[in-house]
């Protein structure tokens, strides 16, 4: 399986799979498949990385936000 990370949507708090190479650093907004919210990776409520590490991006962690 290609590497993926699981961000948790800041709005509905549900996690989904995102392709690491395509989207981890692409700077585009992800689409929550459950509620349709669009958000940057750094705006996720939490992120489960492909290596199993879970972390919570800080509020305003995204540069320029």
């Amino acid at each position: 399986m290609v590497k993926h990370f699981d961000p948790t949507c800041p709005k509905c708090k549900q996690a989904f799979h995102v392709h690491h190479e395509d989207l981890r650093n692409a700077g585009v907004k992800l689409l929550c498949p459950y509620c349709g919210e669009r958000f940057h990776v750094e705006e996720a409520d939490s992120i489960l990385e492909h290596d199993g590490r879970r972390w919570k991006p800080g509020a305003g962690a995204r540069a320029g936000q």
Partner: peptide, 18 residues
Amino acid sequence: EVEGPFGEFPGTYGPQRL
């Protein structure tokens, strides 16, 4: 553009992609 995730042939989800 972003696309997926999608429930794929193995019976598991393929991740969201560009």
